[in-house]
Nucleic acid binder design. Structure first.
Lengths: 170, 170
DNA sequence: TATTGTTATACTCTATAACTATA
DNA sequence: TATAGTTATAGAGTATAACAATA
């Protein structure tokens, strides 16, 4: 267990990391804000999925997810297919145009990082990724009610876990 | 130099770290949003300073800093003293009430982290802090026009570097 | 003229709550 | 009754640009 001074410092770093995020946002195309980019990225990485699953990966409320998805769908970057197993649900899928868009995003971020992190070693970047992932896990425990979600490798079936959405108004 | 796959993963982690920040924001008092907390924290750590210096530490535009500062000043947590050396400038200083407020914030964040990071070692937290600091440095290079700012230990005089503000409208 | 700081405006992201259509 | 998703609304954070006072 770490000490208080460290916690305060970590809090400071988390607060300040926003500057890096904003820097990343500046290289995005004007019609593709960070939220849209995140949707494309996650669909590209995990494959087709439902809204609820995407909301979970984005770690935002489903209502927020719905807005982002509407944005990218309106531009033809994804399609929303009906789910044969559940008529309430919709399956999200990248379109070919969306894949192109995603490739463009990859080029942009790679270029930015290659420039900014030119003096970082492969190992250092790996360490940072590992620790940030762990941090998210440690915090994620609370909203997923202590349920581990073991990162499926494929566009998988279902995950009837507690989802990230506005609590049903009792 | 790291590879493209790593850069994409890092971009993903940066995008997702927002969930942790929001989690931190939820434990704050309702009259002290994250922006206000950051102002108090930086004044507590670095001592009295001018707006421009604070804007630089916050890594946001001076206009944004002005808003945050107005918020905390309105609540009596800081005072804005005239700068004898420059009548345009104002020296920011925590009030005793502000110090109390800051102590409360420290208690809250420490409690949160102690709970969430109970299984982290001191060394792991230190590693994460170190790498996040380095990441900010690597990105910070661009807006401070490649000038290293060597973190003064005391409420220091001046830093006539390129500041963080809206570019003067030519 | 240039700089410090303030303010007005606009945009993005987010959560809450109410609503629909299914289950 | 409960769940998947949508939409309306409100709040926080940010940047841009125009402005006032001073250097």
């Amino acid at each position: 267990m770490a000490g208080q001074a460290q916690f305060e410092e970590l809090a400071r770093q988390l607060s300040a990391i926003g500057a890096v995020k904003r820097d990343m946002g500046r290289i995005l195309p004007s019609d593709c804000p960070a939220g849209s980019a995140a949707v494309l990225t996650l669909l590209g990485r995990h494959g087709d999925m439902r809204m609820s699953k995407l909301a979970e990966l984005l770690a935002v409320d489903m209502s927020v997810t719905s807005r982002h998805v509407a944005h990218v769908a309106a531009r033809g970057w994804i399609e929303r297919l009906p789910d044969p197993a559940d008529k309430r649900s919709r399956i999200l899928r990248l379109t070919p145009v969306g894949v192109d868009r995603l490739d463009d995003l990859y080029r942009r971020t790679t270029h930015l990082f290659a420039e900014r992190l030119s003096d970082w070693t492969d190992d250092e970047v790996g360490q940072l990724i590992r620790l940030m992932t762990r941090l998210r896990d440690s915090f994620g425990d609370c909203r997923t009610s202590a349920v581990r979600i073991p990162e499926p490798a494929a566009p998988v079936v279902e995950e009837t876990t507690l989802t990230t959405r506005t609590p049903a108004s009792t």
